[in-house]
């Protein structure tokens, strides 16, 4: 479904890029588990599912200055889903925007890392999410405003498939296409899970791609836990984003990412899917072990393939 557009980067992401992002995704997962263990709870399942997307963005795609989170030229990453903050904190630590040691304060009193992400608390957190269906409306204004001011920064709004229930998401989807916000990219985490159960049973959103296309967006749909596919989609989505001196007046892009809640930890992948996953005290160490084993097995397999 990718558009035939010019791209300064190679069409298929190089092995080195993929490897770097996969390593970052692993560290984000490990840090999310660590934060969950400290807190004894948390939206770990969502963080594990979205880790590959966040790693693609913070280890490969986004332009930012870790020492200056307010740098005017930074690409803006807007987290609509406030409860995914655990994943974003891990990514911000990976990006060097917040110190790794601070992660252990997650969800504690006086911490800069509250359970639901808020811009007034955390460096690198652009908006306060949590009331779902807001992020894309803010993203539209930010894209209009930055373009108006001649700032070529790109805007990425991360939203969940549950947010597609909200009418405001579609107000914003029409507005972005109407105003030809070519530097705006929406990333939808389709984990097919909402607070009350499976998305298909709560409020049917499929065919999701057709809906965005009908609103005038460039649509990509990928396995959101496949780093190679994600990089390819981001490369394509951003190539029209007008950061090459263009006016930034193309169609906005949406990357629909099918992800797996708890990805990378079989214990959680196989557990009954829940919006707020309960993990017993003794299970945290099992989760970390499984994560490390999986990573080691994949690396070993890769090594063998290279040898062969």
């Amino acid at each position: 479904m990718t558009s035939p557009i010019l791209d300064s980067r190679p069409r298929a992401a190089s092995a080195a890029r993929r490897a770097a992002v996969e390593a970052a995704a692993h560290r984000i997962r490990r840090n999310a588990l660590f934060m969950g263990e400290v807190q004894g709870q948390g939206y770990v399942g969502q963080a594990l599912g979205a880790a590959d997307i966040l790693a693609c963005l913070y280890a490969d795609q986004l332009r930012f200055r870790p020492e200056d989170p307010q740098w005017e030229g930074r690409d803006r990453f807007l987290l609509s889903t406030g409860h995914y903050a655990i994943g974003l904190y891990a990514a911000l630590a990976e990006a060097g925007i917040i110190p790794i040691e601070e992660l252990e304060t997650y969800g504690s009193d006086n911490s800069r890392l509250p359970m639901s992400g808020m811009s007034t608390y955390t460096p690198g957190m652009e908006i306060s999410g949590g009331s779902l269906g807001h992020g894309l409306t803010i993203a539209v204004g930010l894209a209009l405003g930055l373009r108006h001011r001649g700032n070529p920064a790109r805007i990425v709004n991360f939203l969940s498939d549950g947010e597609l229930d909200e009418g405001s998401t579609w107000e914003a989807a029409m507005g972005a296409a109407h105003h030809r916000l070519g530097r705006l990219t929406a990333v939808v985490d389709i984990n097919a899970l909402q607070a009350d159960g499976a998305t298909a049973g709560v409020l049917r959103t499929e065919p999701v791609g057709d809906k965005w296309a009908a609103c005038g967006w460039r649509v990509f749909r990928v396995d959101g836990n496949d780093v190679g596919a994600l990089l390819e989609a981001f490369d394509a989505a951003f190539s029209e984003a007008g950061d090459d001196g263009g006016a930034g007046e193309g169609a906005p892009a949406v990357i629909l990412c099918d992800t797996k809640v708890g990805r990378g930890v079989p214990l959680l992948e196989q557990r009954e899917k829940a919006h707020f996953m309960r993990i017993e005290e003794h299970e945290w160490s099992i989760c970390v072990e499984q994560l490390e084993e999986g990573r080691a097995a994949r690396e070993g397999q890769k090594h063998q393939e290279e040898q062969a």
């Binding site: 908006i127 807001h134 803010i138 930010l142 405003g145 108006h148 001011r149 914003a172 029409m174």
Partner: peptide, 17 residues
């Protein structure tokens, strides 16, 4: 689209307008 109107106004203010 009033939700978009005020969400977008917030975004424009974030952009310095």
């Amino acid at each position: 689209a009033e939700q978009l109107l005020f969400g977008a106004a917030a975004g424009m203010a974030e952009a310095g307008l």
